[in-house]
Amino acid sequence: MASLPKAGPDQAFQEHVADGRLWLQYCDDCGEAVFMPRILCPHCSSLSLEWRPVSGRGTVHTLTVLHRRSRPGEPEKINHAIVLVDLDEGPRMMSHLPGTAPEDIRIGMRVRARFEGEDGARAVVFDREEGAA
């Protein structure tokens, strides 16, 4: 029977996030960074993955803005931008920019990760990097 690592990949990712740390898996064999968390490397099938901190810096690869129809009692439409961010370390993740107006987000914009949400349900979100165009 195959032996299990210390913690499941999703659990390990969430434990780091709960401590305010953005850590990703790195493959000991091929060196690639991996996201979403996995038990094996999708690049080379190695089981030797270890958690390492990453910079949290990245670039907006694409975005879309959901135009929500206002419901009765709501004064105005609320638009919600969803992005894919390419982390400098390689992996891509879906996210959003809670502090940035949808019309100010551009493909190619530099962004920086932070965490949002309650304990147990934290998500990686991004802010526009200071001085970024």
């Binding site: 879309t64 959003h96 998500a123």
Partner: peptide
């Protein structure tokens, strides 16, 4: 996808719009 859901995409449309 569990790592997409917290960002409130609308499936399947979000993928095609992106």
């Amino acid at each position: 996808p569990v790592y997409e859901v917290p960002h409130k995409p609308r499936y399947p449309m979000t993928a095609y719009a992106m």
